[in-house]
């Protein structure tokens, strides 16, 4: 059975409207300030730290992102925490908000498919997140230029750029999750609580739980199997995937994200940086995992939305 007309009809209209809603909303303003202030604090701490400690590092600029000074975590760990919060903040009432304001049936009685509405909302959310992340990224680089007084090298910029893209993909995962729950739950408060709960679980509890689960189900005598098993379990959490990708990208001396075997160390120069391509290759499964999680979660939300009753 084929439908007549394009499912993308009206997509652009929906994206523009949602984007302007997001950018003018008070919620967005609060989230932006939260992100900017905390990230700036982290970068400032990193810069003072970098100045004191590292004199001759070939990847001085990347240290901006990863160095932490005691009470404050590093810029990347801040992002790992705040990006999901932003994404959930933008997505938790995407569909049930329309239901509750009784606008959904009116909009869907216009000549567009539901596809356009849901995908438009997702794209607008992702665009909003991208705009804030790119602004933040430029801010950090600019601050680094001014405060460190050293221009970044080409490879550093390339790594920082890929890091930006990965962060956007990471934001996409949480946005898709928030939108899925906004379809499933009729009340925005329930949707927000469930999404935040799942986020806390996946970010804080699951990585700590993974080794325990691995020990319970795998033979205890094989240490290597235990470690890899625990790691595989932990990688079910997008936060773990993001953390590992960032580690490989921003720390060029990272050679592997799993346990290192002695045979792999033969002939390796310890601490020497890997070329960019190799670093990306190390993190490639994680990057694909993040993108795949976004797509799967979006599709789940899409299927749920297509089957949903429009009546309020």
């Amino acid at each position: 059975m084929r439908r007549e007309g394009s499912p993308w009809r009206g997509l652009g209209v929906v994206v523009l409207k949602e984007l302007s809603d997001h950018l003018t909303s008070a919620r967005m303003r609060v989230l932006e300030w939260l992100v900017v202030l905390t990230a700036l604090a982290a970068v400032y701490a990193a810069i003072t730290q970098v100045r004191n400690v590292t004199a001759e590092d070939p990847f001085l600029f990347l240290r901006l992102f990863t160095t932490s000074r005691d009470p404050l975590p590093s810029f990347v760990s801040f992002l790992g925490f705040l990006v999901p919060l932003m994404a959930i903040g933008l997505g938790f009432d995407a569909v049930n908000g329309e239901h509750n304001h009784r606008t959904l049936s009116r909009i869907l009685s216009q000549p567009i498919y539901r596809d356009a509405l849901l995908f438009g909302k997702f794209l607008a959310g992702l665009a909003t997140l991208s705009i804030s992340l790119i602004a933040l990224w430029l801010l950090v680089i600019g601050l680094g230029l001014i405060m460190l007084g050293v221009p970044p090298g080409g490879e550093e910029m390339a790594r920082a750029m890929i890091f930006l893209l990965v962060t956007i993909a990471y934001a996409g995962v949480w946005l898709a999750l928030a939108m899925l729950f906004s379809v499933v739950f009729r009340s925005p408060a329930t949707a927000a609580l469930v999404t935040l709960g799942l986020w806390l679980f996946l970010t804080v509890i699951w990585p700590a739980l993974a080794p325990g689960i691995a020990e319970a189900f795998l033979p205890a005598d094989n240490q290597a199997l235990l470690v890899t098993g625990a790691q595989m379990l932990a990688r079910l959490s997008p936060s773990t995937l993001f953390g590992e990708t960032v580690l490989a990208l921003l720390d060029p001396s990272t050679r592997t994200l799993g346990p290192v075997y002695l045979s792999q160390l033969q002939g390796a120069v310890m601490g020497a940086p890997l070329p960019l391509g190799e670093s990306v290759l190390i993190a490639w499964p994680q990057i694909v995992g993040l993108v795949a999680a976004t797509i799967i979660l979006f599709v789940a939300g899409y299927v749920a939305f297509q089957r949903q009753e429009v009546r309020a």
Partner: peptide, 13 residues
């Protein structure tokens, strides 16, 4: 053909 219908029909929920 929902689009053809929805183009010509107005709905006040």
């Amino acid at each position: 053909e929902p689009l053809a219908v929805k183009r010509r029909v107005g709905y006040l929920p």
